[in-house]
């Protein structure tokens, strides 16, 4: 339990960005990726708090190699929206 933030699949190779996002969110919320769909609203559906959002952001930063602020994630209405925002961000690299 020394580094619970290490993504379960640290190497993003072969996984779509949407898969990585869903897996990361599921890991932080202690659920399974199939519970996280595009229409999932993390706050309304899972009561996510700001620390958990930051944990999601930190894991995604590492997995995707882009800078992500908690505000980026808070701006998203749902997981699909977050994936779209992150897709834009990674395209800018």
């Amino acid at each position: 339990m020394t580094d619970p933030q290490a993504p379960s699949t640290p190497d993003a190779t072969g996984r779509s960005l949407a898969d990585i996002v869903r897996t990361t969110i599921a890991d932080v919320l202690g659920t399974t990726p199939d519970e996280i769909s595009d229409s999932t609203d993390l706050e309304a559906d899972h009561g996510v708090d700001s620390l958990e959002l930051m944990a999601v952001g930190a894991q995604l930063e590492r997995a995707l190699g882009v800078q992500i602020s908690p505000e980026d994630l808070m701006r998203a209405d749902n997981v699909g929206h977050a994936i779209a925002l992150l897709t834009e961000r990674t395209a800018d690299r």
Binding site: L51, E52, A55, R62
Partner: peptide, 14 residues
């Protein structure tokens, strides 16, 4: 400290 001493900002948020 042992895991993240070299990169403190990489420590878990919690």
């Amino acid at each position: 400290a042992l895991d993240h001493g070299a990169d403190p900002m990489g420590m878990p948020v919690h």
